[in-house]
Design a protein around this nucleic acid. Sequence first.
DNA 1: TATGAATGAGAATTCATTCAT
DNA 2: GATGAATGAATTCTCATTCAT
Lengths: 200, 200, 200, 200
Amino acid sequence: MTKPVEPKTVTPSVPDRLLAEATRLFAERGFERTSVQELVEAAGVTKGAMYHYFTSKDDLLYAVYERVLTMQMARLAEIAGNGGSVADRLHEAAADVVMTTVENLDDTLIFFRSLHMLSPGRQSEVRKERRRYHELFRSLIEEGVREGAFQDGVPADIVVNQYFGAVHHLGMWYRAEGELSGAQVGAYYADLLLASLRTP
Amino acid sequence: MTKPVEPKTVTPSVPDRLLAEATRLFAERGFERTSVQELVEAAGVTKGAMYHYFTSKDDLLYAVYERVLTMQMARLAEIAGNGGSVADRLHEAAADVVMTTVENLDDTLIFFRSLHMLSPGRQSEVRKERRRYHELFRSLIEEGVREGAFQDGVPADIVVNQYFGAVHHLGMWYRAEGELSGAQVGAYYADLLLASLRTP
Amino acid sequence: MTKPVEPKTVTPSVPDRLLAEATRLFAERGFERTSVQELVEAAGVTKGAMYHYFTSKDDLLYAVYERVLTMQMARLAEIAGNGGSVADRLHEAAADVVMTTVENLDDTLIFFRSLHMLSPGRQSEVRKERRRYHELFRSLIEEGVREGAFQDGVPADIVVNQYFGAVHHLGMWYRAEGELSGAQVGAYYADLLLASLRTP
Amino acid sequence: MTKPVEPKTVTPSVPDRLLAEATRLFAERGFERTSVQELVEAAGVTKGAMYHYFTSKDDLLYAVYERVLTMQMARLAEIAGNGGSVADRLHEAAADVVMTTVENLDDTLIFFRSLHMLSPGRQSEVRKERRRYHELFRSLIEEGVREGAFQDGVPADIVVNQYFGAVHHLGMWYRAEGELSGAQVGAYYADLLLASLRTP
DNA sequence: TATGAATGAGAATTCATTCAT
DNA sequence: GATGAATGAATTCTCATTCAT
C-alpha cells in the first residue's frame, strides 16, 4: 500500500531484488560465505546501487530479520485476538507459526543461524522483539492455565521455549519436496503441544 | 610405555588445548568470526602446531562435532539398553540429553549454527550420524506405541524432530547462571514429551 | 569520446604497469620467487588493484604468454604471406623470430621456464597455439621440399623442433650488452637453418 | 664400482631413493611445487632422514645437476678423444648428447627449467661446468674449420649455442612413447648440424 | 541515482627447517 | 642414524567499503 505502483510490475525494485537474493544466498551458503559481489551479481545490480539502498551487508541481513519479525508478530497478534476457546486459539497460533515458518524457510534458517553476525545493537533489538512475541504466546498458555484448561506442572516459559525451539529447527530438516505439507506439520506440532498441556 | 608421566600433568596436550579453545571461541563469536590467529593465541600454540594436528580450520570444527556425536550416542545407547518400562527409559533419555546439552552448551550452540560451514562431505557424515541417533530415539517411541503405552496420533518421526529441535535450541536461551539447573529443565522437557505421548 | 587526453600520457595504465613489471620480475628471479607483494610494489599499485584486473598470479603469467604468442604469430603470418622464393621467406621468418625473441628476451625466458606453472588448461592453450605457429613454419619447409629447393632427408617436424628449440634458448645465453645484435644472431641462425636444408 | 655391494640389492639406498624421486617430482611438477613432505613420502623415508643426507632441498636439486654434468662431460670427452675424422667425431658427439638427453629427460628438463632456483653460487658452478662442456664441443667445430672440412661463415660459438639450445629443448617436446627413438632423433639432429657446416 | 576502480586490512594455509629425544 | 612435533615467516588471495565521476 505504501509503495507507488511500479511502471514495470514484472521487475521488482532494486531493494526488493537485493533482499530476495540475499535471503536465498544467506540461507544457501551462509552470511559469511556470501560476498557482496556475488549478491549484487545475483540481483543484477551494481555494488554502488546496493550501497545506495543499504548501508552495509549487515544492514541487508537485518532487513531479513525485520521482515520475519514483523510478519510473525502480526499473525500471532491477529490470532490471539480472535474469539474461540483458549485451546483453539493456541492451537491455531501454534499451527500457524509452523506454516509461516516453512513458507519462509530461508528466512527462518537465517534467523537462528546468523543472529550472531548482526551488530550487538541489532542483536538486542531482535531479541527484544522476539521476547515480545514469546510473551504474547506465553500469555495464551497462562490464560489456559488460569482457566483450568491446561495443566500447570511445567512453567509456561519452559513450554514456550521448548515449542519455539522445535519450530526454529524446522529449517534444519523440513523440506518442501518431502511428503508433509507445512499445514500437516503445523497440525501435528500443535496437537503435540496441546496434548502436552492437557490436564491429566 | 606409551608415554612417560609428565611433570606437569595439569597442562593438556596441544590438540586438547586447541579443541577446548576452539569450542569456546566458536560458541562465543561464531566459527566465521574466529580467526585462526585468535584461536592459536588463545590456546597458546603456534599456527604451525595447529596445522600439524588439524588439517584445516574446518577440521577443528569437525572435531567438535565428533566429540558431541560420540558422547550423545554412547549415552543414549546405554539408557536405551537399560531395564524398566519404555516410558521410564524414554523419560530418562529425554532428560539426559537435555542435561548433557546444557553441560556442553558451547558444543551444542556450534552444532546447529555452524553445520553449513563444514565441507559438504562432512555435513553428510554429521547428518548421517545424527540420523542414527534419532532413529534409536524413535525406536523407543515406536516400542511404546506398539505396547499401547503411547498414543499414535502423531508419527514418531515428527515427535523426534520436534523434541530434538527443542533440545538443540537450548543453546539459544539457556544460561547456566539462570534459576534452572540442567536437571530441572531436563525433567520439565521430558515431562512435556511424555505428556504429549500419553494415551488420551 | 572514449577517453579524454590525459595530462600525463606517460603513465601507463595499472594493468600495463603490472604486466611490464611482472615480465621483468618473472624473468629476473622466476615466477615462483616473485611474490605478489614485490610485484605490486614494483608496479606501484595495491594488491587489491592487481586482483581487480587479474584473477590470480597465474593469470598475470598467462597474460605474458598471450602477448608473445599473439605477436609472434602475427609476424610469421605476415612474412609467410609475402612474395619471394620460399628460401627467402623462410630465411626472413627464421631471422625475424630471432630478432623479436631477443627484443623480448624476458618474455621468452619466462615462456619456456614457467610453462609448467600455468594451470593445466592454460598449458594446453599455450601448447595448442604454439603448435599452430610451428605448423605454419613447417608448411614453409614442406613447400620448399616439394619445389626441390630443400633436401628431404630429415622430417620437417624435426627441423622445426630443432630450430625453435634453439630460438627458445636464446634467453639462456644471449645478452643485449654482448657483441652481437639480434639482427646478426638472426642472420646467422637463419643461415645455418638454410644451409642445413640445402640440397646436397 | 665405488659402492659396496648392498645387502638388499633390490632396495636402493636412502639417498638414491631420494634422488630418484626428487628427479621424478621436480620434472613432473617443478621444484617449487614439490614439497619436502611429498618428496620424503614418495621416497618412503622421513624428513629427518632426508636432512641427514642432504643439507637442504636446494642441495637435492644440485645433486641432479651434478649427475647430469658429470655424465655428459664424461661421454663427450670420450668421444672427442676417439680416432676418426672430425666430422665423424662431431656427428657422434652430437647424436650421443641427444640420446643421453632423451634417456634422462627428467634430469634435463629440470636442468634448464630450474637453474634459477639454485643458490647464486651453485648457479655459477653449473654455468662454469656447462661452459667447459660447450668449449670442448666448440673445439671440435673449430678443428673442422681449420681442416677445411667445415665452412666458417658462422662463428663456432653461435653454432654451439644453436645446437645445444635445440638439444636442451628436447625435454619440452620429445616423448618416449612417440614414434621416434632417441637414436633416430640424435641421428637427424646430427645430420642437420653437419649439413649446416658443410662447405658449399 | 548509479558506477566500478581502487583500497587496505586481514584471512587461511604452506613449508623448509630445527631440535629434543 | 633417525624421528616427527613444532616453528615462524612468508604466501596468495578475499572482501566490505569508499569515492571521484
